[in-house]
Write a protein that binds this DNA or RNA. Structure first.
Lengths: 144, 144
DNA sequence: CTAATTGAGATAAAATTTGTCTTATATTTT
DNA sequence: AAAATATAAGACAAATTTTATCTCAATTAG
């Protein structure tokens, strides 16, 4: 009943990126250092984010990552589901055949309801919401 | 981002018990059979429930388990936390020292908020809610 | 005493999470 | 054009958690 380290790193990494000027190319090494996460792990996480289309990757010297979507359009739910997979509170919610209780037991509907509430909450936050102090970091020396 | 099989089994097991007449002694074997769960696993789960004080165990022939609390007082949150441990959506929510962002980043408060919402929802359902068809099963032959 | 049942805990398989290391690729510099 | 460099990509692996199983001890009813 928690998000993974990987999702947490992904969110923090994207927030770090969102604090940079729009279009800035970010290196995994920097992202990892500034989010206190293992660089090689963060590298893999950003590969997944790139595959999903959320960010764009550039290979080679001076390569790195840029946003492929606006931070305000990237919800926490999107990030968590890209990294951890679909949010499914209980097996029976997603797979009706695995829930013998559909139709004669309320457990199914409880999990469905709570899951809806949870995903709605996760959808109500965007990466941009946590980069609000962006202006404060936009001083030339902070932009680098 | 899900409950464990063990928590699901525990809830279904307790609901099964709640459909029996109050005070009935239930065998793990029956509980497991009627919830489609591995008996030995269910046995361990009920040991944990007994240790928590939610149910009472009787050893020996004709032993088994009875409720130690009213089904309407046993919330889903209680069961999940007994089996899976405390609900903590993200590491930084529980352990302030592991969250470098407390005070200067909203991620901490997002997880705190969503966690509150989730635990509140889980607390709003009780085992009794899912044993509502109890009366329908109270026919003498169903009571056994 | 015997059979039935739980308690406790050792053991283990499977899956998932968390991470590292090597390789491939593109870019810059020479 | 070649070499050096910085990076992504992906194979590999360690650690942890989940999901069990199995054995043996304890207890009690008949």
């Amino acid at each position: 009943m928690n998000i993974s380290r990987a999702s947490d790193y992904a969110i923090r990494g994207l927030v770090y990126m969102a604090k940079k000027p729009a279009g800035a190319v970010c290196f995994v090494k920097d992202i990892a250092k500034n989010t206190n996460s293992p660089a090689s792990f963060m590298s893999k996480i950003f590969q997944t984010l790139a595959k999903s289309g959320l960010v764009h990757s550039f290979i080679g010297t001076k390569g790195g990552f840029t946003f492929n979507a606006r931070p305000e359009d990237i919800t926490i739910k999107m990030v968590v589901e890209i990294i951890d997979g679909p949010i499914v509170l209980n097996r029976c919610v997603v797979n009706k055949s695995s829930c013998r209780n559909v139709g004669n037991c309320d457990v199914h509907f409880m999990w469905l309801d709570i899951q809806k509430m949870l995903t709605k909450a996760l959808s109500s936050y965007s990466i941009a919401d946590f980069a609000a102090d962006k202006k404060g970091n936009m001083l030339p020396e902070a932009v680098q």
